[in-house]
Simulated scan of single mutants.
Amino acid sequence: MKRTVVLLLEIASLLVILRSSFAQYLLTDMQHSLSGWIAHVAEMGERKVLSDLQKRISPYIANLNEYQHDYIMDITSSRGKIEHFQRYYCQTDDKNPYVYGNTRIYLCSEIRKVEF
């Protein structure tokens, strides 16, 4: 009987502590940190693929204008931007004011080699 009362008191005190604003703040902060770590680990492979792509195309785009170089580095910085570029400028041959001609053809061929 004594154990049951002690156990019920412990459970009640735990509930009171966990429902406090400080505990809620602490648990929320821990959740954000943990989800940030998980997202970081999940995106490691994608970041490596993007970094390899940028290293591969870097010598070829070194002689371009600064704005063209910055544009290409920007579109190769995320998977979504690469997919957008490929959809509009590689698959449909839409006009791009920054990347055109052989540069566009080379960039499209390098993007096709990328596997996420």
Rank of each mutant, 00 (worst) to 15 (best):
M1Q: 07
M1L: 13
K2S: 10
K2H: 06
K2T: 09
K2P: 04
K2G: 05
R3P: 02
R3Q: 12
V5L: 12
V6Y: 08
L9Q: 05
L9F: 07
E10R: 01
I11R: 02
I11F: 10
A12L: 12
A12V: 11
L14W: 00
L14H: 03
L15F: 11
L18D: 07
R19H: 06
S21P: 07
S21G: 00
F22Y: 13
A23H: 12
A23Y: 06
Q24C: 03
Q24K: 14
Y25A: 00
L26W: 09
L27P: 04
L27C: 05
L27V: 12
L27D: 14
L27M: 12
T28L: 15
D29G: 08
D29I: 01
D29C: 05
Q31V: 08
Q31G: 02
H32K: 15
H32C: 04
S33N: 14
S35H: 15
W37M: 12
W37A: 06
W37G: 11
W37K: 14
I38E: 08
I38Q: 08
I38F: 08
H40T: 03
H40A: 14
H40V: 02
V41L: 13
V41S: 09
E43A: 13
M44D: 13
M44I: 05
G45L: 05
G45Q: 10
E46C: 08
E46Y: 01
E46V: 14
K48G: 03
D52C: 01
D52R: 04
L53K: 14
L53V: 06
L53D: 06
L53Q: 13
K55M: 03
R56P: 02
I57R: 04
I57H: 10
S58Q: 13
P59C: 11
Y60I: 03
Y60S: 10
Y60D: 12
Y60F: 08
I61A: 01
A62P: 09
A62C: 03
A62H: 14
A62G: 06
N63C: 05
E66A: 06
E66P: 09
Q68Y: 06
Q68K: 05
H69Y: 15
M73T: 14
D74H: 15
D74S: 14
D74W: 11
I75S: 02
T76V: 02
T76N: 03
T76D: 01
S77V: 04
S77H: 08
S78G: 04
K81H: 07
I82E: 09
E83W: 05
H84Y: 07
H84C: 06
F85Y: 15
Q86C: 02
R87S: 00
Y88D: 07
Y88S: 02
C90S: 01
Q91T: 08
D93F: 00
D93N: 14
D93V: 02
D93E: 10
D94C: 12
D94Y: 11
K95A: 04
K95S: 04
K95E: 13
N96W: 01
Y100E: 09
Y100Q: 14
G101Q: 03
T103M: 11
I105T: 05
I105W: 00
Y106A: 10
Y106D: 05
L107Q: 00
C108S: 03
C108R: 06
S109T: 11
S109D: 15
E110V: 06
E110I: 13
E110D: 07
I111D: 09
I111K: 06
I111G: 09
V114L: 15
E115R: 11
F116C: 14
